[in-house]
């Protein structure tokens, strides 16, 4: 099938094409879905190598289920986010059994003269965000990332997490407050002038 035509096809129809042997469908689906799965997994795990493994495993499960995919029951992206969520939860639990990684284990945010005037570089802020996200409960972390970083709607998050819209709203609000509270102690290091905790 011509590439231009494939670009306009929904994820679900691409999956059907893949199951029917179309050689280009998997490449296009990967281009669409792998970055989303990787980005989400990387934020959940704060570990690039583990996030890549999760992405590969989630997509492998997608390829395997393609011949039996039931059209109209779920969005492909929603299904994939759910698989990534579950894989990351399992990994974090396994990691917890080996020894928890907390805020104190995160890379140190640069201080002193380097940050006093120019603020921190983006990598430092992202490291602080990852460490703070790690302080939330699994469900709060998932909801906050899906809502505020992945940019999904509350109904989409509800479908992924098996929750109603109101429960998602509550979870994201509490998660955001908790995140602000954790980061408030580091606002000077992060180069923010405002009081994050008060505003939350």
């Amino acid at each position: 099938m011509p590439r231009d035509t494939l670009d306009e096809i929904s994820d679900e129809n691409l999956l059907v094409l893949y199951a029917n042997g179309d050689p280009d469908a998997a490449r296009l689906l990967t281009a669409r879905l792998a970055p989303r799965a990787l980005g989400y997994a990387a934020r959940l795990l704060a570990d690039r190598a583990e996030a890549e493994d999760v992405t590969q495993e989630a997509l492998l499960r997608l390829w395997k289920i393609a011949p039996d995919w039931r059209r109209g029951e779920a969005q492909v992206s929603t299904w994939l986010y759910r698989v990534v969520t579950n894989l990351c939860t399992d990994l974090r639990r396994a990691r917890g059994r080996r020894g928890a990684v907390g805020l104190d284990d995160a890379p140190e945010v640069a201080g002193g003269a380097r940050s006093a005037e120019a603020g921190l570089i983006e990598a430092d802020r992202m490291a602080a965000l990852d460490a703070a996200l790690g302080q939330l409960s699994d469900r709060q972390r998932q909801a906050v990332i899906l809502r505020h970083i992945e940019g999904l709607s509350n109904p989409e998050i509800g479908a992924i997490m098996g929750l109603g819209v109101e429960a998602v709203e509550s979870l994201t609000a509490r998660g955001k407050r908790a995140l602000a509270a954790v980061l408030a102690g580091r606002k000077a290091e992060l180069g923010y002038e405002g009081d994050m905790e008060d505003e939350a």
């Binding site: 893949y18 998997a26 490449r27 990967t30 792998a34 970055p35 990787l38 980005g39 990387a42 934020r43 690039r48 996030a51 890549e52 992405t55 590969q56 997509l59 492998l60 390829w63 983006e122 802020r125 992202m126 965000l129 505020h148 970083i149 992945e150 940019g151 955001k176 995140l179 602000a180 980061l183 606002k187 992060l190 923010y192 405002g194 994050m196 505003e199 939350a200």
Partner: peptide, 28 residues
């Protein structure tokens, strides 16, 4: 401040490496 941090995180999302894409393509 928090919303700005979220925007930075969204913009800084990692892109799949060539190695990862190759592994995924082989699986597919």
């Amino acid at each position: 401040d928090l919303d700005g941090l979220f925007k930075q995180a969204a913009a800084a999302a990692p892109l799949p490496s060539a190695q990862l894409l190759a592994r995924v393509a082989a699986d597919a």
